[in-house]
Amino acid sequence: MSALGKNMMLLLAGAVLLMVAPAFIVSKFYIDVLTLIFFTAYLGQSWNILGGYAGQFSFGGVMFFGTGAYASSILLTTFGVPPIIGIVVAIFAGALLGFIVGFMSFRSGLKGSYFALITLAFAELLRVLANSVEFTGGGVGLFLKYAPGLSNLQFETPTGFYYFALLLLFISIAIALWLERSRFGAQLVAIRENEDAAEALGINTLRCKIYAIMIMGAMGGAAGTFYAQKYLYLDPPIAYSIHLSVEMLLVTIVGGMGTVFGPLIGAFVLHVVNEIARHFIDTPGLSLIVYGFILIIIISYLPNGLIGMFKKKLKQTDASALDKLKSDQGDGNA
C-alpha cells in the first residue's frame, strides 16, 4: 500500500510539473515540441490499448484519427457546429469505425500479421474514399478558419494547445492506469498471452477485442479534432497517413508495449532523437532512418521496450531476494 501511495505521489508530482512547465519555458519552440510529444504519446497510448494490452497489432491506427478529424471539421465547415461539440462526434465516429473494423476482422478470426495488414487496408480504403467524395473537399482538402476560442478548441498561444494536449495525455494515462487495475485490463492481457485459455476461463474474447479497438477509435477520433484545430488544414494524405500509423506503434514499442508510460517515454525519446538528428543534418529522412534502426533493435533485443529494460533490472533484484528467501526456508517445492 505504501509503495502504491509512493507511486501515486510521483505521478502527481510529474503531473504538476508538466502543468506548471509553461511558466518556466520561454521558448515557443520547446512548448511546441512538448505539445507534439504529448500528442504522439496520446496516439501511442490509443495504439497501446489494442496492441500493447490486447496484443492485436494494427498498421492502420491512423484511420480513427483521420475519421475524427474529418467528422469535426466537416461539421464545422458545412454545418457550423463548434468543434467542442464536434470533438464529441469525432469520438463517437472513431468508436463506431473501431466497432465496424473490429467486428469484421475479429469475427472472422484475423490476428497477427493479417490483422495488422487489414487495418492498413482499411486506412487506405478510407484515404481513397476521402480523396474521391465531395464533402471531404476531396484532394484539395479542407481549410478551417482561424478563430481562437474555447468553443473552437483553438488557442492564440502555443501554451493553449500545450494544455489541450496535456489534457489528452492525462486522459490516456488515466485509461491505461484503469486498465492496469481493472478486470477489463486483465482480460485484455489474458487475450494477448493466450486467447484459447482466456476463452476457456469465460472471457468473451471477441467482445473484449472489439471494446479495445473501440476505445482506441474513440481516442483517435479526439486526436483528429485536436490536429485539425491546431493546423487548420486537412487532406486525405494527412488524415490517413501511413506515417502516423507507424509513429503510433513506434513510440509504444520503443517505450514499452502494455505499460502505462511506455508511449510517453517512447514519444519523448523519439522526438529528442528527431531534434538531435535535425540539429546535425537537416535533410529529410534522416531521423526516420534512425527510427527504423531503433525499431529493429528494440524488437530484436528489448521486446519490452525501454521500460522493460528498467523493469527487468528491478525484477532481477526481486528474484534474487526471493531465491534467498526460498533457500532460507528450504522450500524446494515447485
Partner: peptide, 16 residues
C-alpha cells in the same frame, strides 16, 4: 498447459 506466460501465478489465477 496454456499459461498466460508473461503474467505471474497470482495474475494468472486472478483472470479466472
Amino acid at each position: 498447459t496454456q499459461p498466460f506466460a508473461g503474467l505471474t501465478t497470482l495474475e494468472n489465477i486472478m483472470v479466472g
